[in-house]
């Protein structure tokens, strides 16, 4: 079943077009990667799907519009936005009360996630006093608290240590195994190669290529890694070569 359907999505910031009429589908049980350089339009695409910014075109999340599907979405933004005056515990209680979650369910889930992400010592410390990595962990736990069917993760592994990254990757794997879907943006090729079932290569607001890793390799007749494939698709291979030559002073 299709979890997310995006048709002709366009995102404008005044005169700038950040996303230019892109279309794709994400199925249940699938990790769909948005891969592209900085400023390619990944975050704008993700924000539109999360219902945070106005857009043109059509987005359906399990058949619903983003505004109506907020209970189905767990979103971890690239720039962490939390209420810094609260402690993580107060923040989770705040989220649970707005989402009207059952207290017992939340406590059980929270117990597991707090242990997994090792933030028990910080539960009563104001978020303002936490490190960036710990803030990210809090944001991830808050996104998982209501068992969302769709996880939208914008560069989720940035700022996380190796152990936490591994745990988050496992959580993602379990999520899709249980029938959930994940939209995941990154500019790190190795992560995309390891995690994603299908990848869309985005540049300048357009999808240049889409498919599994093998399909993308076939597309550009490359037997290299995803980085080679990406550079070929985005036409940056020659540019990189020239830069490297220039650096050989």
């Amino acid at each position: 079943m299709v979890a997310v359907s995006v048709e002709g999505l366009t995102v404008r910031y005044e005169k700038t077009i950040a996303v230019n009429g892109i279309s794709f589908k994400v199925n249940e049980g699938e990790i769909y990667g948005l891969l592209g350089p900085n400023g390619a339009g990944k975050t704008s695409t993700i924000k539109a799907i999360a219902g945070l910014i106005p857009y043109e075109g059509s987005i359906r999340i399990f058949g619903k519009q983003p505004q109506e599907a907020k209970n189905l979405i767990g979103y971890v933004p690239e720039e962490i936005m939390l209420f810094e005056s609260l402690t993580p515990l107060e923040f989770f209680e705040f989220i649970a009360s707005i989402r009207k979650l059952d207290a017992d369910d939340v406590n059980k889930k929270l117990e597991n996630l707090v242990s997994a992400f090792a933030i028990r010592d910080y539960l009563n410390t104001p978020i303002a006093a936490l490190s960036m990595g710990t803030k990210k962990k809090v944001a991830v736990i808050a996104a998982l608290l209501h068992n969302p069917k769709l996880l939208i993760l914008d560069e989720p592994l940035n700022g996380l240590d190796a152990k936490t990254s591994r745990i988050l990757k496992e959580i993602m794997a379990i999520h899709v195994k249980e029938g959930g879907a994940i939209i995941f943006s990154t500019h790190i090729m190795e992560i995309a190669e390891k995690l994603c079932n299908r990848i869309a290569v985005i540049n300048e607001g357009r999808i240049l290529a889409e498919g599994s890793i093998n399909e993308l390799k076939e597309m550009v007749l490359s037997d290299g890694d995803l980085e080679d494939v990406f550079l070929k698709i985005t036409g940056q291979e020659e540019e990189v070569r020239e830069i490297l030559n220039a650096l050989k002073l």
Partner: peptide
């Protein structure tokens, strides 16, 4: 109420960015 507290905190921090170095941020909150 949560937003209000957040705004007041941000206002205090923006007024005095060095506050966090002079005092424990927990005390400010």
């Amino acid at each position: 109420g949560v937003l209000y507290k957040e705004i007041v905190l941000q206002s205090v921090l923006s007024r005095n960015p060095l506050a966090t170095t002079n005092r424990k941020i927990e005390d400010i909150v």
